[in-house]
Structure formats: structure tokens, C-alpha cells
Amino acid sequence: MGVEMDKLVVLPCNGLDKEAGALARELSLHLTRQGAKLVCPVLYQRSPARYKKDLAWGELLVIDGCKTGCASKLARERGLKIARRLNVAEMLDKMGIKGQKDPVPETGHLSALLSLLPDMLLLRKEEEEEERFEEILFSESVEMKEFMVGKFLFKVPVAGYYFNENDCWARVEGNLARLGVSDYVQQSAADMVFFDPPEIGAEIDQFGEAGSLESTKTALDIISPFSGKVKAVNHRLVENPELVNLDPYLQGWAVELELADFSSERELLMDCNEYYSYLREKVEREFREKYG
């Protein structure tokens, strides 16, 4: 088959729990037969040193079974650089196949996945290139206003952002908007460990969910300030969710939307000044409740 196996190192889901997992395992074995190297998630967890050489040899492809994304999480915990990611549950969704409960994979499902595989592997690369191109639209600096409560410092941009009361922001450029979560979310949730992006092309309602984040403390949905169609997701954030902690308003963006109804939806949102006052009041109240 026409996929160039340019030195793939495959880290799959363990594959024992559900059919999607078992299929992830089968896909990995298939790729191994084509020259890819395999990282066993269980052994890797116990003795990561065993795979040092293999991991240095090629590009890492992570194959998750279901949307829990255990393999991605493992890679991230170990600080591995993920070059590509496949998710069997998403691939099945795409083909309109319903995964079954029985963890022994159905042969028809496997061959359907194999037929999709070459495209999926190429697609991931193209998406990355598209992203690099789009990055230029949104400039990478913004002026911040700060306030302190106790020993905590909170930052809010001075202009150019819209916020909802769920502490999610949108930065608008023409008919596009980037979405993310505010510095306050980042500080209260602590270290982000996982970003589950929405599907490219998905239609999102105003205040609907545009992907989710998971930190060491909690899980949270990104509540979209605007409605629109998902044009891009931040692949860097999939690999490095801690960008939300490091730079919540710029590099920590999560999703890019093509806006559907900016002017009327904007009325239900706060601008930077309004959010600054709203947040300050909220943080001060929380502080009083906690420390009296």
C-alpha cells in the first residue's frame, strides 16, 4: 500500500478493553509488518529505557483506541514528541461505523480502517502545514493588564478579546476567531495534561463545547463564546497542553472558528475591560470566602 513508512515508531493503546482499543492494536501490528517499530505501552510504562533507541530512531505515531486517549496521555506524561496521532473511535465515526462492546474486533471493521489508514497518515501532515500557514494571521503578542489577589497575579489582555462568564475567550480576526481559556482557568485548574480537540468542520453553537481540557486536578469543557465552524485546532496544544499554563492567551489557543454571527453574539459577551472587572470581583470574592 502506498504509505511511505518514513520511520514510524508506533505507540498504541493497550487494546484489551474495547473493540476500538483492540483495533488500535491491530493497526499497530499491521504497521509493524510494514517496517514500523512498536512500543508496547505496558512495558514502556515499566521500563521506558528499553525503548530509548527505538524512540530516537523515528517519528512517533500514537494510536488511541477510544476518546480517553490513554496512549496520548502516556506519551505526554513521558515527554515524548508526538509527530502524528490517530484515534480509532474517531476513524470509525468518520466512516459511520458503530464500534461494538465485544473487544474482539470485527474483521470488517479492521479492513475498513486499513483502507482509511494511508489517507489518515497523509492528512495529519497536511493539517500541520495548513496550521503553519494560518498562524501568521494572528499576531503573537498582546498587551496585558494585571491585578493581584493575595499572592496570586492574574492577567487579562487590554484589547481584542471577548469573554464569556465561563472564563473562555475568543480573539477575532476578520471572520475567524481563536478560542481558549483565560489565565484564571489556567491557575485554578493547575497543570494541563490533555487537550481533546473538536473535529475539523464541526459546527459549534454559541456557548456549546469546543473541545475539552484535562489538568492534574480537573476536567473542563471549552465553552465557545461564538458559534461557527471549526477551521483548525491547535496541534501544538495536543502535543503540549501545558502551553495553556505557559501562555493562555496566545500559544495556548485551542480552536479556530469561522464565525457565523459575530455582531449579534458579541452582545452576550464581555470585552476585555468588562472581563477584567468581572474577574477581579470574582477572584476577590473567592479569596474572601476561602481566607475570611
Binding site: 464569556n164 462568564e165 465561563n166 453553537d205 454559541q206 456557548f207 456549546g208 480537573t218 476536567a219 473542563l220 469543557d221 465553552i223 449579534s264 452576550l268
Partner: peptide, 30 residues
């Protein structure tokens, strides 16, 4: 309760928490 937040539902193992329809509430606010 923070309007449009549904975060506590994720902590509920027996899935006992439900919320109104977001679309309807947005329409009502407008």
C-alpha cells in the same frame, strides 16, 4: 450556578445531573 457551566456533571458517576438545553437558554437570553 454559572450559566452554561456543566462541570459538576463530569464528577457524577451515576450520571444523575442534567441541565437545560443550551440553545433554548441562549434564545431566551436574547
Amino acid at each position: 450556578c454559572v450559566v452554561f457551566c456543566r462541570a459538576c456533571a463530569k464528577t457524577c458517576a451515576p450520571d444523575a445531573l442534567s441541565f437545560p438545553d443550551k440553545k433554548e437558554i441562549t434564545a431566551l437570553i436574547k
